[in-house]
Computed example of a mutant assay.
Amino acid sequence: MQRHSTRSPLLSLPGAVPAEGRDEGVAAHYGDLFREQRALADGTGFVDLSHRGVVTVTGDDRLSWLHLLLTQHVSELPAGQATEALILSAHGHIEHALYLVDDGTTVWMHVEPGTQDALIAYLESMKFFYRADVADRTDDFAVVHLPAGSIAPIPDGTVVRETAHGRDLFLPRAELESFAAGPAKPAIGILAYEALRIEAHRPRLGMETDHRTIPHELGWIGTAVHLQKGCYRGQETVARVHNLGKPPRRLVFLHLDGSEVHLPGHGTPIRLAADGPEGRQLGFITTSARHHELGPIALALVKRNVPVDAELIADTTAAAQEVVVEP
């Protein structure tokens, strides 16, 4: 995966600690992780997501063309209505996750950092005779997240993607610093944003997914996959599993033992507590965080047949599960 080279200017704000890994380029936090989480949960502040890729599609056929490629029904998407969609492989495995809104003339979408080049290459390969133009706008626009309940003013002319979780602004990158200096503050780091995402059981491409993840395993059916629309790549797998089978794995939410100093990271094996650290691996941690109220929490993918009341361990950390995707 290629990384976008832009380093957020907000990393120069007081207390900013740079994030690492896939969130490199923005702040992990600004000095007080739990304060930032509480602010975000209370509907105040903003999150700098300027490391995410921004892609636009213009042209008269933009919606009807995207409708043929995406898992979501977008051919008649009303202007201003937010949605999310996936692009699947021929075998139904998740390749891209797109967070979209159409402003009446342009479809705006933000995607995982570094995935925009591969996404654009795929879209360009599928244009054929359709009147649709795809552009990488990552250099020009930065994504900024305002939490649900925020009363912060939005600059005139800003494209907004509003959902139950808050509003994503496609802000001109040149205006990022002036926005941060305005009434929307305080700035909140990506770790607080991720903790609340885990609490809300919302999957993230590259964290909750691997090369063989299908949408059913993560609960993306309904929110990102429309089961009544026509054919798209991977649709046969989606329909077959939905109508005839069961996904091989399921997403779970974990309450982790708070006495442990270190959080189990992405990929940490999940086993039955009764079998101990040498037992058979039944899944793995996808994302973990320290939550201001819940303590250490995580999302994990486990095999479908793991009992919902089973006591689990992540490496040596005790983990009590909550069902996200029914087995």
Rank of each mutant, 00 (worst) to 15 (best):
R212K: 12
N243E: 11
G258P: 04
D61W: 01
A314C: 09
A195P: 00
R52H: 13
A148I: 07
P215G: 05
I87P: 00
A19G: 08
G283P: 03
F141Y: 13
E326A: 13
H96A: 09
E76A: 05
A318D: 13
L191R: 11
R38T: 04
L146C: 05
Q321S: 10
Q116M: 01
D257F: 06
P269F: 02
H96Y: 12
V252T: 07
K185R: 12
A174Y: 03
I221V: 11
K127G: 00
R137M: 12
T286Y: 03
Q116R: 12
D257Q: 12
I87K: 00
E326D: 11
K229H: 06
G219N: 05
V17N: 05
R22D: 13
G276A: 00
I154Y: 09
H29E: 13
G283F: 02
A181I: 06
E236A: 07
Y130M: 15
L244S: 10
T209F: 10
A19F: 08
D210Q: 10
L196R: 08
V101L: 10
H165D: 13
I151L: 14
T83F: 00
P14C: 02
G31M: 04
E199A: 13
P215L: 03
L191S: 10
G25V: 02
D156G: 14
G234S: 09
V160C: 15
L66A: 07
I285V: 15
D23I: 04
